[in-house]
Design a protein around this nucleic acid. Structure first.
Lengths: 212, 212
DNA sequence: CCGAGTTTGTAACATTTTTCACATACTATA
DNA sequence: TATAGTATGTGAAAAATGTTACAAACTCGG
């Protein structure tokens, strides 16, 4: 591994995808150059912050003009690792699972969902959005054989932990948990709990603030 | 509005829902007391941080014992405003929209989705998960009549901005945007862009880090 | 009642992140 | 070729966040 030449702070990393989204929008509009101000507005971030973030990995703009959209986009893709394809499996083909399978953007971000798992017998053996659905009983076997390292959990909260245990046993290295449950994994596994409802707290907070 | 007595820092606010989730799990387990260490583990946060966050709004634990789960949960509900019910509408009854309508937790967080909108004639006039689906043409009319202040956008990216414009015109005060698009609203409207793919960046980053 | 073992609350410190201020560099127009 | 306008790059200051360390408070077993 020699990608350590680029060391991006945690907080910058969270903003980069927002910048990236803005760049894509610019490209769609055939806009050739973009200013830090414009990016900042789209990402709800200070313009100086944007410049500093971009400067971190050597993305330079030209004064008086801005950043070249195409170049910057390419640079971001490199830093975010969007060119590396990561194969993943998804467990729980319910509404949330299906929404994620079809969410436009995951593929673009290098996440390639190759297999699905569910416990519903009616689904097992079928295809959902072009991916085969296997029984949850086969998780261990299939993940090991395919050597998958990333898993997405979209099962009901009460099953999340037991699924996670099996995934870890199967050799999964990163878990993206959308189930509204607290799960625990060994320290060598990267866990990201995505709490959709958490965003509500922030939203309501600002809403209440405005109403004063 | 007299909740201004409690002023919670932005970052604390993002962590509180994670603590809350942990408390719910404790309650399900009939656990009476919980330590900051345990909460921290569940929320992937330092224990001292947890104590500091909780101290901010006067939640006190007892040394040697921990925090009373029931009390702390009640306190958090108050701070996060989970007792206030916020009525909301959702635009875009696709997979993502349906996933959100049924996501277990929004109701619990005080978000009450009362009406849906879509442009698909086959959906209009039907009910989805118990909510009526109206035409997107009626957004202005219905939102004004119902006096809804919160809207959730789950339409395809290319329609997000125009939908947002209508919502603003209808008097919406807070928009929660799940569409993978950059949208702009007047400053008096609270906008939260939820980029599901953004979490991937963090996940992959840590994954790469571990692999070194 | 005492002492070992926990766990909180908080002050002091270290680190990170954000903002401010301003010099520098490019474009365009006259 | 000036000159005005715009936008970047970056050092320094400010703010915030996170960590460490430790005294105080509680429980429990003897």
């Amino acid at each position: 591994m020699h990608s350590d030449s680029i060391k991006v702070p945690k907080f910058t990393l969270k903003r980069l995808p927002l910048y990236y989204r803005c760049l894509r929008a610019c490209l769609d509009r055939n806009q050739e150059y973009v200013s830090s101000e414009q990016i900042g507005k789209a990402a709800q971030v200070n313009a100086v912050q944007v410049r500093k973030d971009l400067a971190l990995f050597g993305a330079m703009g030209t004064p008086g003009v801005g950043y070249c959209v195409a170049d910057l986009k390419a640079k971001l893709e490199e830093v975010l690792g969007l060119n590396n394809v990561n194969e993943a499996v998804l467990i729980g083909v319910g509404r949330l699972g299906r929404a994620i399978i079809d969410y436009p953007g995951f593929e673009r971000y290098g996440l390639h969902i190759v297999a699905l798992f569910d416990s519903n017998p009616e689904l097992i053996g079928t295809q959902v959005s072009g991916r085969p659905v296997f029984s949850t009983q086969e998780i261990l076997h299939i993940i090991r054989r395919l050597q998958i390292k990333v898993a997405i959990i979209t099962v009901p909260a009460e099953y999340a932990q037991s699924i996670a245990n099996v995934l870890v046993e199967a050799g999964i290295r990163a878990i993206w948990n959308f189930a509204p449950a607290v799960i625990e994994v060994p320290s060598h596994v990267v866990l990201r709990n995505e709490d959709l409802a958490a965003g509500l707290a922030t939203l309501f907070h600002y809403l209440a603030e405005r109403n004063e």
